[in-house]
């Protein structure tokens, strides 16, 4: 039967996962990671025509050809192909934007368009996906480096620029999914209104309200129009006495990145 092993189409003469291990020189025990159609297993499961299987020797570095299929091995088959063709823009690379970008890179979104004007500073590290070694570096470059260490198959387009009412239409002209991930409420409102007033072909996924340590369950995704989604608790802004902290910021970024993924996969309700 025809199956895919580590991204390569092969003709397999056998019945089960352990047969496959034997034929291709992998041990059947837990020193081999065995993933069948996105599901990792220790059992000797039967193999069917067209199954997609990844076998990884633990601790061994694969060659580049096999690496991509291994990185995507835990994704649902068919999903990865669609996600790989997609492109998502992220406006602002702070707590929301850096988390959204890394989530989407892990999922395997083909192209990420990352925009920010700022540099990494110590106060960012409480919630943003940067490291000490990035202090002083442009956020666009630091995040590009982070993503290259997570999924080198994502194409990253970076722009080190402050997004304004005047330049935003030009910056996002090739994007149809834009995640608004700014800190400043005036910038948030500006970008959302401008893109949705001037473009009929763009989805905007915005965020409002994720400060403090209120219940995680108060953060929701709400669909406002066919093109406009907003994530957050809608009320708790950052202010004196109420800071931004990693857990709720990443919950909100999780909502935004999952909404982007769902739009890519033609699921438009929330």
């Amino acid at each position: 039967m025809k199956i895919k092993l580590n991204g390569n189409a092969i003709d397999f003469q056998g019945d089960s996962l352990f047969d496959l291990c034997k034929i291709f020189g992998f041990k059947e025990d837990e020193t081999t990671v065995k993933i069948i159609n996105g599901f990792q297993t220790l059992e000797d499961l039967p193999i069917k025509e067209k199954d997609e299987i990844v076998l990884i020797k633990k601790g061994e570095f694969p060659n580049e050809q096999e690496l991509e299929s291994m990185l995507s091995a835990r994704h649902t088959p068919k999903v990865y192909e669609k996600v790989k063709k997609a492109r998502v823009a992220i406006a602002g690379l702070g707590g929301l934007g850096s988390n959204i970008a890394i989530n989407l890179a892990r999922v395997g979104v083909g192209t990420l368009h990352l925009i920010d004007f700022d540099i990494v500073e110590p106060s960012n590290l409480n919630r943003q996906q940067y490291l000490m070694k990035h202090l002083g570096m442009e956020k666009t470059k630091a995040l590009k480096e982070q993503i290259s260490q997570i999924n080198p198959f994502v194409k990253i387009i970076i722009q080190n620029v402050k997004i304004t009412e005047e330049n935003c239409l030009e910056i996002f002209k090739d994007d149809t999914i834009v995640c608004e991930a700014f800190d400043n409420p005036l910038s948030k409102a500006m970008l959302v209104n401008k893109l949705l007033e001037e473009r009929e072909d763009v989805y905007v996924i915005s965020a409002s309200g994720m400060a403090g340590y209120f219940s995680s369950n108060s953060i929701k995704t709400k669909k406002i129009t066919d093109r406009f989604y907003i994530c957050g608790d809608m009320e708790n802004g950052a202010k004196q006495g109420m800071g931004l902290m990693a857990p709720r910021v990443s919950v909100c970024a999780g909502h935004q990145s999952n909404t982007a993924l769902r739009i890519i996969l033609s699921e438009y309700e929330c």
Partner: peptide, 10 residues
């Protein structure tokens, strides 16, 4: 109508 208010934080 729905009026969406933006608060700070990101």
């Amino acid at each position: 109508a729905e009026v969406v208010s933006f608060v700070g934080g990101g």
